[in-house]
Design a binder for these strands. Structure first.
Lengths: 248, 248
DNA sequence: CGTTAATTTGAGACCATTCAATTTCGGTGG
DNA sequence: CCACCGAAATTGAATGGTCTCAAATTAACG
């Protein structure tokens, strides 16, 4: 029998997830408790830890509960391309539920707490609960939309535009999720990570960030970011929230 | 009452789709006939026609029956980034089933025949038929994987590598789908389209293709492509089929 | 407070772009 | 069947954004 304390505690971990899901799909109390009662494993990992490795067979799906994480692929000469960043309440590898082999790597960006669940359990709950199925299906479609925008970002924007766009995306998503109030204090990304996410070198990322600072668009030091002029930054980055599908 | 002739004819149109689906998910005769009996609209469009426009409300989903198509986004200065190419038997906008507004454009690359279906019909059939649901869910996850690889391609490879990779992807997908035998005769892509897909200019794409030709890696003229040295081209493009998930 | 990671700076080289101009290709009408 | 036309491919030369390779400085952390 599950104690009331543990039960509430479980539900508590899923608040960012439920909050995000319920913006788009109605959940019943049954949905929520069924979700919380799944055989979740808890895991805490250090910064830079690999959560998934390309080429390995998929066994579980991973929900990010606390901290930040990112997906990446390595090319033959060893260069790294970051493909997406993830915030609490997001699945890091929902595709593992259906695909047999991981096609990219997932790494912790900061110290992370994770909810880990066997892939077949997830498939079962998706079959049984239409609301949860739709919520996950929507998450996955929105992930896809973000990947598409990243193709555009690295393919057709220059350094200044790419970085402005990335900062806008992170701010917008954190604000929408309620994790941050929008000014994005606490910005644990290294310049090398920003470089790998934008297809630039760390050196050029450094110079570009300095330019944005000198123009009074952002304030960034000691892992603290402040967006000083959102309108200007969004204009530079050609940023529109549409692709994030915050409302449905 | 649906005539036998029309019924068979309908099924015929979906052969490339069913063939692809059944590599990963078992379909029953009931699944197939239920699918064929949906209220499909047929549409034929000319080269370059827009099938979906960013910002427009989503009403239908579109299945490519014949011809080639691509997804793209335009940035503020008018530049175009192509995000994916599509071959017969693939959905062009499955995300329309759940999202309210299109986040990118879809264009016909050649003259196309399309199957068009209202989004709510698709949602219903996915709720009712687990096999079809899983097939579409898999399609969508693999689309996502391709988008991720494209982020890597434009983000961390040089011109030569990007184009080699793109040619390998197209060849591999056409071969796997059975549309082509793998040598990829009939290559209707313009150099401008290849440029827009790889984040390059048409001029540099031209020079890079010439280099690949001079090295004896490909033969390309008059819209006919032949891969002369697959191994070498795949090595240059750092190409692995893993991300295409041909088998599950 | 020492050690490593992360950021910053400089200078030169290079890949890809820009901007034209030219040639070839593909389709059309006379 | 050939002349014509716009689209696509090709070529050249100059420019420039980003990279490379160090080296120096600053920040983070136990």
């Amino acid at each position: 029998m599950i104690s009331y304390g543990a039960y509430v505690s479980n539900l508590h971990h899923f608040q960012p997830l439920f909050k995000r899901w319920e913006r788009r799909v109605p959940l019943t109390d049954e949905d929520r408790s069924a979700w919380a009662e799944l055989p979740w494993g808890r895991k805490t990992v250090a910064r830079d830890a690999y959560l998934t490795r390309e080429g390995e067979p998929t066994k579980v799906c991973t929900l990010l509960l606390q901290g930040l994480a990112f997906r990446q692929k390595l090319v033959s000469d060893g260069a790294r391309q970051i493909i997406s960043f993830h915030i609490p309440g997001e699945f890091l590898d929902i595709q593992n539920s259906m695909l047999e082999v991981a096609d990219h790597n997932v790494q912790a960006l900061s110290r992370c707490t994770l909810g880990v669940i066997p892939k077949d359990v997830l498939v079962q709950v998706m079959d049984a609960r239409p609301n949860i199925r739709r919520a996950i299906w929507l998450d996955s479609l929105i992930d896809s939309s973000v990947f598409r925008e990243w193709v555009v970002n690295v393919g057709r924007r220059d350094a200044r535009e790419r970085i402005a766009h990335l900062l806008c995306e992170l701010t917008s998503r954190l604000k929408s999720s309620g994790v941050s109030d929008g000014a994005l204090y606490d910005f644990p990304f290294t310049q090398e990570q920003i470089a790998d996410a934008t297809g630039l070198t760390a050196v050029h990322t450094n110079r570009t960030l300095q330019a944005l600072r000198k123009e009074g668009l952002i304030k960034l030091s000691h892992s603290q970011l402040t967006i000083l002029d959102w309108e200007a930054l969004a204009a530079i980055g050609d940023f529109s929230e549409r692709y994030l599908h915050h409302s449905v």
